[in-house]
Nucleic acid binder design. Structure first.
Lengths: 340, 340
DNA sequence: CTGAAAGCGCTTACAG
DNA sequence: CTGAAAGCGCTTACAG
């Protein structure tokens, strides 16, 4: 494989001149630049990434920590990954991916060995055990998901509180007075999936303020349990006219569950989910939903991370915590409740 | 960040001795080894990956090229990625991920700049335009998916021909005489998705040999088109008693389609899919299916790739083309056809 | 069993 | 506008 030394020799210049001609970091005569460029083409030269990283302390690689936990719905995670990956590429960065369940090892390895210039953490828990490691690392970090302590990192998340309110308000406005909210599994909450109770608490509070009743429940994130649980839930609350679903697996299972019971949305039941439009299309979900904007969140996280990496963020510009406002995508699954 | 020089100084030895003490590549007195190990702990030393890569020409990174094409069903791809990623980690390698639609750029970048020790190509087309680049690269490559020309790479795939035969034979044995096969979209075939026609041709031939009729068709891989098309298909072939589905999106849409038409499998229609057990669980699909074994294929590809990278494969050991035999996972969706 | 030195392939002050 | 040299942090022959 050709090195910059080969290029320099073929072009008849010094290695430093060849390097500068390629980086454009100092003035080079047109003639020399031509010769260097020709040599590059002739030799098919590409800089050695490791050597460059060693010399510049920049790898042009971003570490992406995605965890595929047993009790989580994998397809939902993929969209965040793609948002991160696509944006990184646009900005000239490659992605070093870890899918290890124990993210701490991967994080330590990537940061300590200087394989990456920055880190994106996905699926951040309230007291995420990766955060202390990330804060101690020399590289900047961006999170998708809101932890209890945001110091030292940039944080991006859907405004789940607003989402909870929006869901309740929407159905309240249509005349619903009894709702059921299905959240992620309870152990997701216990593990620190803060978004679950952020949405749930806001929904409960909104219902209280509006004077309507809301049954807040959890459901599995795996099949076929979730389908069974949804059925039991509908049995348990026959008076409920609206269903709020903050659980992708439950949303994916719902068409089958409703069909099996001979129910139609919105004629028999109004339904509002919380998932992305991409997700809705993949799973053919006909329910209106709060857009969770995984691609946008991934994009925002990478943009800010790269700003920090490249020092455009200013030496001690404070870290940001930025929420995406939930938007209700209307797919026609809500209506005024049927006359009791 | 501490360097090996720091470690050497603290341990009171030379840098080479520190290095050897850590790598174990030459005999070191117990006392010196202790001192070096203590220094490492004290300083929190981790080798710089770029420097090591430069010195050894080994990055301990594997490039993973996954393409998320418009007309393909993303969740199915994820499982191959996880198989590759998990196995790589077990063997001590990290994953550099590319999701670029134009994989050639990513491939060239990774290989030319020596960011990776080897490459795994996912979703390989019959005349995959990444292959010439991969063959010309100094790093070894492993494919998941069978191209027309396998020279210079290790290839792993499901035996789709066997899968097609197995589907037909299974239903034939139960007494079915008219079947419909739903494949991936036709433009997947045109783009070179060889597995589509490998399964289809084998199914057609098996049907011919058995003297039963098989209607081979294509369907979209996106919603809601695929649901509509499935409906039209069932309308067009009212005599068919068995449905073979080689299209993940169609399989995912099928429960809704059948429910809507008041059909039940296997009472009204026997159904056999071709997807992984993981996929079946994620999408709550109740159909018997040919296991597509994405995790196993990803694992096999990485194992062989690492063997080559590490030179255990022998200098000119021939490349392998290995097929996973399809197995039918019975989920109770097939039975003897209802009396005409 | 250990050390001094060269080299991997870059970039970037320093000098002219 | 260009070149010679140092240095990034490792590993590994070479020498003892």
């Amino acid at each position: 494989m050709a090195t910059i030394g080969d290029v320099a020799r073929v072009a008849g210049v010094s290695r430093s001149t060849a390097s500068y001609a390629l980086s454009g970091k100092r003035a080079i005569s047109a003639a020399v630049r031509r010769r260097v460029e020709d040599a590059v083409r002739e030799l098919g030269y590409t800089p050695n990434a490791g050597a460059r990283a060693l010399a510049t302390s920049q790898t042009m690689v971003i570490g992406l920590l995605a965890q595929f936990l047993e009790d989580e719905f994998a397809p939902a995670m993929l969209q965040y990954m793609l948002g991160v990956s696509d944006t990184a590429r646009e900005l000239g960065y490659d992605i070093l991916l870890s899918t290890e369940a124990d993210g701490r090892n991967a994080l330590r390895r990537m940061t300590d060995s200087r394989m990456v210039d920055g880190i994106v953490l996905l699926n951040v828990a309230e007291h995420d055990d990766r955060l202390p490691i990330l804060r101690a690392a020399p590289q900047p970090g961006a999170l998708v998901g809101l932890p209890a302590d945001c110091t030292g990192v940039d944080v991006f998340d859907l405004d789940f509180e607003d989402a909870g309110r929006l869901m309740v308000d929407h159905l309240h406005r249509l005349g619903h007075r009894e709702l059921v909210l299905v959240s992620q599994p309870e152990h997701v909450v216990e593990r620190g999936g803060a978004y679950v109770w952020r949405l749930q608490n806001a929904a409960i509070e909104a219902a209280r303020v509006r004077g309507i009743s809301l049954h807040a429940t959890f459901a599995s994130s795996s099949q076929p349990d979730v389908a069974r649980e949804l059925g039991a839930l509908l049995d348990a609350h026959p008076q409920a006219t609206g269903l709020l679903v903050n659980n992708e697996a439950a949303a994916a299972a719902l068409p089958t569950v409703l069909h099996a019971r001979g129910l139609t949305a919105p004629a028999d039941l109004s339904v509002v989910g919380r998932y992305s439009d991409e997700f809705a299309r993949t799973f053919s979900l006909p329910y209106s939903s709060i857009e969770s904007a995984p691609d946008r969140l991934g994009r925002m996280a990478v943009r800010e991370l790269v700003r920090r990496i490249e020092g455009q963020a200013g030496p001690d510009e404070p870290h940001v915590v930025r929420f995406v406002s939930p938007e209700l995508v209307d797919r026609g699954s809500t209506a005024a409740p049927r006359e009791g």
